[in-house]
């Protein structure tokens, strides 16, 4: 059973890495700016999930804190980019 579980962790990690590749392709080719922001959003969520996979693999909780930080900063970054697309500036007077 443990070998199957190892295989499942490998499989999921590969899936998230491929998802990051897809998001990167969209980030580079994306015709409009909002496509790129959406791709960035998807990219950091996949990266966070990959870190959680590493956490399961190693059994340490340090990866969990990193995942939480990626979620926090990714959210702030996407918010700032979307706000910029909407209003032309991030922090309004």
């Amino acid at each position: 059973m443990t070998t199957i579980f190892h295989f499942a962790v490998d499989f999921a990690q590969m899936c998230f890495a491929l998802a990051m590749v897809c998001a990167t392709i969209r980030l580079i080719t994306g015709p409009s700016a909002q496509d790129r922001v959406l791709a960035f959003d998807s990219l950091y969520i996949s990266g966070m999930l990959t870190l959680l996979m590493l956490g399961i693999r190693s059994g340490s909780t340090a990866y969990f804190d990193m995942a939480l930080l990626i979620a926090l900063f990714g959210f702030v970054g996407t918010m700032a980019l979307a706000k910029f697309l909407l209003r032309g500036e991030v922090i309004e007077p």
């Binding site: 579980f5 999921a12 998802a19 897809c22 998807s42 999930l49």
Partner: peptide, 27 residues
């Protein structure tokens, strides 16, 4: 994760495969 009990690995395996497939489909 040398030897985890079956009640943890069995659902975790199913969940990881399903979650990976769904995230990949979304991307």
């Amino acid at each position: 994760m040398s030897d985890l009990p079956l009640w943890a690995t069995l659902p975790a395996t199913v969940l990881l495969v399903a979650g990976g497939l769904f995230a990949l489909t979304g991307a």
